[in-house]
């Protein structure tokens, strides 16, 4: 996490990431784009396919922009949902120093 400053922008994910949350989530990422971002997934209870799409596309966008994207404090439910959907949590983060 050394490549993100403590004061960097953060995005707290809402508990329910289903159909009704996807549009707002996308909006959040579009707003925060162009800077390092810490995403807090501590409250997530539920993750659906469409919000997963947003997370994956965001990760790709941050990588394309060469900005760091970190996942903090993942809830158990969030990790379980990622596992179910066939996504390793590290696939959602991007670090400039890939070796870190």
């Amino acid at each position: 996490m050394e490549n993100i400053q403590p004061g960097a922008a953060t995005l707290a994910l809402p508990p329910i990431l289903d159909l009704t949350a996807a549009a707002a989530l996308l909006e959040e990422f579009l707003t925060q784009r162009g800077q390092p971002l810490r995403v807090n997934a501590g409250d997530v209870q539920r993750l659906g396919g469409q919000c997963l799409q947003v997370l994956l596309a965001a990760r790709a966008a941050w990588a394309a922009d060469e900005q760091a994207l970190h996942l903090d404090d993942c809830s158990e439910e969030f990790l379980a949902a990622l596992d179910l959907l066939g996504v390793a949590s590290k696939k959602l983060t991007y670090c400039k120093e890939m070796s870190s």
Binding site: A22, L26, R33, Q53, V54
Partner: peptide
């Protein structure tokens, strides 16, 4: 790409 993504 993120900017072209339809959230739904």
């Amino acid at each position: 790409e993120l900017s072209e993504l339809d959230p739904e």
